[in-house]
Simulated assay, not measured.
Amino acid sequence: MTAIQGKAAPGFELVRQAFLANFSERSDIGAAVALVIDGELVVDLWGGVADPALGRPWQADTLANVWSTTKGVTAACFAMLAERGQIDYDAPVAKYWSEFGAAGKENVTVGMLLSHQAGLCGFRNPATIEDFYDAERAAARLAAAEPFWEPGTQSGYHAITIGFLATALFRRAEGRTIKQFVKDEFGDLDIHIGLPEERTQSAATMLAPPELSSTGMVGEPTEAQLAAMANPIIDPLLPNTDAWRAAEIPSANGFATARGLAKLYGALAGSGDLDGRQLVSRKTIATATDEQIRGMDAILSIPASWGCGFLRNSDGVYGPNEGAFGHSGWGGSFAFADPTCKLGLAYTMNRMGTDLMGDPRNVALVDSVYASLSS
């Protein structure tokens, strides 16, 4: 039986049971789950193996690459900028980044960009993984590009490219890259864009079935889907490489603990206060999570409702309350806020699953939290 460490406050035994069952029944290898309610960390559990080859156990400070769960962290960074009056969701991106206005994109607003409406879901010309490792060059390439659809007419998941676009815009508005901003603002939460060199021994080794690749997310692909998911094809084991860990990809190479993510979302679910520091106001959180667009995603072919970078809880994946918001990552990680219950919940792991939605580990944990709250 997998040894589980950490704590679950009285009344949250069901969460511990669900987490343990993720190992015994749902094939988890190494993982962590954390829950913050009304500012209090009530669940903080971890267990299993961070690196099976070495037998290195998952520790309290083990960092996992959380893939697209990173996008929620990036959305929080933009909300903080909006709070400080340094960016306006309704303003054109070109106001801050003039080059972006090329090829018919002059009217794309910040909110449209962050809600995947800009039509820049991938590169039009052949790209390699190495192109991901120069964020500014990748952003310049996208800024000059013609969109795959008329911006504002639909959303289509910018799986990787939103990270390059976001950090380029962020730097022009704020002065720092998102990677640096996260280091300065969230470093004490153990949330990072890329893996700090000094934390190499804390990183979980990502594991994936041989058949898992980015192209498996779509069926018969359109031109836009090919650009988003197959140019280049993304290997799920990239987070184990030095180049990926050193890069700045604020859409996909976040490294974090579940505890840090739960604390961040716990703050966003409440007053916006984190350990006595005001991140954002309730008003700004409401603006950041207000629906920008709803409909069938042109890339993933699933229904989605987007705020300004946050995925809104339109399908119940983040529990029963419609006001919940967050983001999930390829393979199974997730983090979200539920303002109704003032909670932040996060899960990180190293064994990637194949479910695009409805990963049974996620479902079990979310269900156990709300069952605990209603009991």
Rank of each mutant, 00 (worst) to 15 (best):
P210W: 00
A159Q: 02
D273G: 01
A145E: 02
D315N: 15
A82R: 10
G307M: 06
T167M: 08
I160R: 04
A135M: 10
L81H: 06
I299N: 00
R351N: 13
P10I: 07
G175E: 08
F164L: 00
I234L: 15
A103T: 09
H192S: 13
V73F: 00
D134M: 01
R312Y: 00
G175M: 10
P10D: 12
G156V: 06
A75Q: 03
F186T: 09
A145Q: 15
T287P: 00
T200G: 06
F186W: 07
G119V: 01
E322N: 01
G319P: 05
N22G: 15
L63K: 00
A31G: 09
W58M: 08
L311M: 14
F123K: 04
K183H: 12
F255D: 14
P151W: 08
S281I: 03
Q201E: 14
R84M: 06
A34V: 12
V36A: 05
Y370A: 13
S328H: 15
L300G: 04
W67M: 09
G219C: 13
R56H: 11
D235I: 06
A127C: 13
S281T: 14
S155Y: 00
S374Q: 15
T161A: 05
Y133K: 02
V280F: 01
T222V: 02
G353D: 08
A203G: 07
Q180K: 10
S375G: 15
V218D: 06
L264C: 09
D338W: 11
H192P: 03
E83M: 02
T62H: 10
A204W: 01
A227G: 05
G6P: 14
I293D: 06
D134F: 01
A228C: 10
V110S: 04
R84N: 12
V317D: 03
S213V: 07
N125Q: 15
I37Y: 02
K95Y: 05
A53N: 11
S202L: 14
F100Y: 11
G119A: 04
F23N: 05
A79T: 06
L207Y: 07
D315T: 14
G272I: 10
D338G: 07
L14K: 15
G152P: 07
R124E: 09
G219W: 13
L41D: 07
P151H: 12
D359V: 00
G85M: 05
G216I: 12
T128M: 07
A230L: 03
H158L: 09
A262C: 11
R245F: 06
V317K: 10
L35G: 11
R259D: 09
G316S: 11
T109P: 13
P320E: 03
L81Q: 12
N350I: 09
A64I: 00
G326S: 02
A203N: 09
I193A: 04
H192C: 11
T289I: 06
I249G: 02
I293E: 09
R84Q: 14
